[in-house]
Design a protein around this nucleic acid. Sequence first.
DNA 1: TCCATATGATGCCTATATGGAATGGTCTTT
DNA 2: AAAGACCATTCCATATAGGCATCATATGGA
Lengths: 299, 299
Amino acid sequence: MELRTLRAFVEVVRQGGFSPAAKVLNATQPTISKAVKQLEDELGVPLLDRIGHRSQLTAAGEIVYRRALTLLAEREGLVAELEDLRGLRRGSLRLGLPPLGASTLFAPLFAVFRSRYPGIEIRLTEHGSKRLEEMLIEGEVELAGSLLPAKEGFDGQGVRCEPLMAVLPVSHPLAGREQVTMADLAGFPFILFEGGFALNQVLGDACARNGFAPQIAARSGQIDFIVEIAGAGLGVAFLPKTIAYQRRTPAVRLSELAEPGTEWHMAIVWRKGSYLSHAARAWLELTREVYGDGDGPSG
Amino acid sequence: MELRTLRAFVEVVRQGGFSPAAKVLNATQPTISKAVKQLEDELGVPLLDRIGHRSQLTAAGEIVYRRALTLLAEREGLVAELEDLRGLRRGSLRLGLPPLGASTLFAPLFAVFRSRYPGIEIRLTEHGSKRLEEMLIEGEVELAGSLLPAKEGFDGQGVRCEPLMAVLPVSHPLAGREQVTMADLAGFPFILFEGGFALNQVLGDACARNGFAPQIAARSGQIDFIVEIAGAGLGVAFLPKTIAYQRRTPAVRLSELAEPGTEWHMAIVWRKGSYLSHAARAWLELTREVYGDGDGPSG
DNA sequence: TCCATATGATGCCTATATGGAATGGTCTTT
DNA sequence: AAAGACCATTCCATATAGGCATCATATGGA
């Protein structure tokens, strides 16, 4: 019993005959005739009581007709629901963002997205880049915020690129400098984020390129706390420019980290080759709209 | 989109893989693989996000999975309902009976039928044979009570055969005779049933064979009234033996109509070649059980 | 009553689809 | 690193669906 045969039978009942049913279905009369016969053979019960050229539903026929209607309606419902999904009238977007910069950069997008696609539910998760990558691989989130360059196995779309700022205590010898290099900072203790943050990786790599391993004065996940203890003289912290200016206190001075390869290049990334839902594509489209290609601080 | 492909997809989701799904469906893995691919192509949306060897449902996949489950359940419901019908656990029997002898002969059957097949609804219609034949042809009733021999285009199963009794007023010259022939009654007025009763046909034919046309004193559809006016001397009436004895009054005498071809042979008839529902077959079976082959008054 | 017409069933043929075996690529596991 | 598991793809044999032609029968009108 396939939907094909049920469809034929239903149309025979609706149209009151095989020939008109064939017309409706853009088929020939023998095709319909055979489809109904097949259905009857398969179910082992006549569905139509052929009185000459007039057909009358048997008891079994009524059952099959009624059920077939709901089956076909269910199929229509299925394609309609998919159509809704395609048309972004429903669906959900599972998005993972890192705490650093997420609120600043993406908060405005949420409002636009919600108003443009009110039927799409946004499910937001906040984690460090490492955990987010795992979640991408597991499929727990479709998109995640992360820093470029994207790791192997991931594709990404840049959102915004800005330099890192070294957050120095006012008492620091380098405080007040417009720019500093990683070499300048070789001797000083660092204040880093907790493990699993992409920024640590960027900084660590830069140190390695300059031939030293940083001394870790402290780790924290809280930006304000990091700025605080930097101001207290524990060491030098690093923040993206915008965030650094937002969060700076009188106790610190900011110097741009003039070090190639340490740009804070926030992006939306996804597992390479994974199917992106229409909702996810819409989100990417929206970020492009707002932030351009994400090459610079043009937002 | 056919139920076959949906079934394959559902099993892939359930079993968590193509190969185990193939096992469950008694098919090979490529078959399943192609079925899912076909479904995806047809719907224009990936249903599974292939992460290496692990597959994860996409948003569209979840929709299709959920809908497919209800579709398949609906199909199961269909065959289950037909099975109920076949097993006489449900259904309806549309039965047409003539007023004459219907209650007497069939009343006991109703009780047995109801207790044996409590799920089957009996829809009873009472009409004369002529109308019942029309209803059989139209399919308004499946079975009808009628007299044998069955007309062209009908099949029948005998229920009970008994002679007709002439119902004579006590004052009638023939009153008290054990038997009378149609020839004996040639000169007397007849009291017949209303048009459309099979008994009239039988009597009319018998008169014709004896070379006379009966004089009609009165017609009625009410048995008691017919016996009444027969007793009042209006003419001679005719009733099947059992009914005649049940309804006789002191004002009448009964004589068996010893005339070949006038046996009152009640039967259940149906349109020749029509599909008989399981309920109808069960009813026929029951009448055979109770009345045998219906050749004589053996009930 | 008879004929023209319409209707559904059937047989045959072809295009298509389906299912299975073999194979290849990729990921996972030991 | 090798073995195994898993899915996709290709090829081929078979089965199936759909159309054409035809037949049988019922219907409706003259």
